[in-house]
Amino acid sequence: MGMKASYVVQPFELHRKRLRPARQEAAQSESGALKKAENLAKRMPGAAALRIVADDETGELESATILEAFGEVPDDFAESLQGG
Rank of each mutant, 00 (worst) to 15 (best):
A5C: 00
A5M: 02
V8M: 07
V9D: 11
F12C: 11
E13F: 08
E13N: 14
E13M: 12
E13C: 09
L14N: 03
R16M: 08
K17G: 04
K17E: 14
K17L: 11
K17Q: 13
R20C: 01
R20P: 04
R23Q: 13
Q24T: 05
Q24W: 06
E25P: 02
A26Q: 12
A26V: 02
A26L: 10
A26R: 14
A26K: 12
Q28L: 15
S29F: 07
S29Y: 07
E30T: 00
S31C: 01
A33Y: 13
L34V: 12
K36T: 11
K36V: 00
A37V: 10
E38T: 01
E38P: 00
E38F: 02
R43G: 13
R43W: 05
A47S: 12
A48M: 08
A49D: 12
A49C: 05
L50S: 06
R51S: 00
I52P: 03
V53S: 14
V53H: 05
V53C: 08
A54V: 00
A54K: 07
D56V: 04
E57N: 13
T58H: 07
G59S: 08
G59E: 06
E60K: 11
S63C: 05
S63M: 01
S63Q: 14
T65H: 02
T65D: 15
T65C: 00
L67E: 04
E68L: 04
F70I: 04
G71K: 07
G71T: 06
P74S: 05
D75A: 15
D75Y: 01
F77M: 07
A78E: 12
E79W: 04
E79V: 02
S80Q: 14
L81R: 00
G83T: 06
G83M: 11
G84N: 03
